[in-house]
């Protein structure tokens, strides 16, 4: 059971003057429970790629199969239960009178549960997103930006998707909001083995969370690697409009004065460890 993408191509405004290939000949497999970061510059095709996962877009050639369901098949409802999709600024889609009702929306649409069953799921989704009970009866429009974002994500989590796709989930959040969101996602992945796919502009941000990095460039997968290896070729990343963490640049600079200093460092901890090896303790 997994996501299987075979020779996927998608073209926008097909057969018009505005024709533009968005993704081209992509083949890849994502296994259950993976934490994948899909990174790329604006217009690299990353959003187009993920919208194929729940059938919002259909392949113009090639195929996308999720847990054995072809996204072109009639089982689109089943597919959307499996793949939860959180769009950019999801709080802009909140509409119900209360937080509770808004989280319930997808559940009511996709399943026929009893009131009690629904309640259990709604509260579980809220808990996973650290939404406290006292917020549940408030209007979603009274909440702060970060809280709204969590409610919107809970509204997708509530149907218990096996695969959760998030498009720029941290946009506009401050550093603490961002860290808390990643913690929640980490927890969901750990406890339920949910596949988590994060689409982002910033490799640095996702590298700490993901265990696999796909770099998109001009509609194709330019790199399929692990966070540890992703920053090996900083020049290549920059040529694709991406950048590396500051410590990676620092490691490169140090390797100019200290022979054999490792250059693929991308976390503060790793840098501290390496420096302690070469700089004499006072």
């Amino acid at each position: 059971m997994a996501i299987e993408i075979n020779n996927l191509s998608h073209i926008y405004n097909k057969e018009t003057v505005m024709e533009k290939t968005a993704v081209h000949d992509i083949t890849l497999t994502i296994q259950d429970g993976e934490k994948v970061g899909i990174i790329g510059h604006t217009g690299s095709g990353k959003s187009t790629l993920v919208q194929h996962l729940n059938g919002l877009l259909k392949p113009h050639s090639g195929s996308v199969t999720v847990n054995g369901i072809d996204t072109k098949s009639k089982e689109i409802k089943e597919l959307r239960k499996i793949v939860g999709m959180v769009f950019q600024y999801p709080e802009h889609q909140l509409f119900e009178e209360t937080v509770y009702k808004d989280i319930a929306f997808g559940l009511k649409k996709q399943y026929e549960f009893t009131q009690e069953e629904m309640d259990v799921r709604i509260r579980a989704a809220a808990l996973a997103m650290s939404i406290s009970d006292e917020l549940m009866e408030k209007s979603p429009f009274e909440l702060s930006g970060g809280q709204k974002r969590r409610v919107a994500i809970a509204g997708v989590l509530v149907t218990d998707p096996r695969i959760l796709v998030l498009d720029e989930p941290t946009a506009g959040l401050d550093p603490r909001g961002r860290d808390e969101l990643f913690q929640s996602l980490e927890e969901i992945n750990r406890t339920k083995n949910t596949t988590i796919i994060i689409v982002s502009h910033s490799m640095e941000e996702v590298a700490g969370f993901a265990n696999r990095i796909l770099v998109m460039n001009k509609g194709t997968v330019a790199m399929d690697t692990t966070p540890d290896k992703a920053f090996e070729d900083v020049d290549l990343l920059e040529s694709m409009g991406l950048s590396a963490p500051q410590v990676t640049y620092m490691a490169r600079a140090i390797s100019g004065v200290i022979k054999d200093f490792p250059t693929r460092i991308h976390t503060v901890e790793a840098m501290v460890k390496e420096l302690m090896k070469v700089v004499k303790h006072p």
Partner: peptide, 16 residues
């Protein structure tokens, strides 16, 4: 553009 985005998002949540 916004309408299209919202329709997509609610469709993904199971709206019909």
């Amino acid at each position: 553009e916004e309408t299209q985005k919202i329709i997509k998002a609610q469709t993904a949540r199971g709206a019909d």
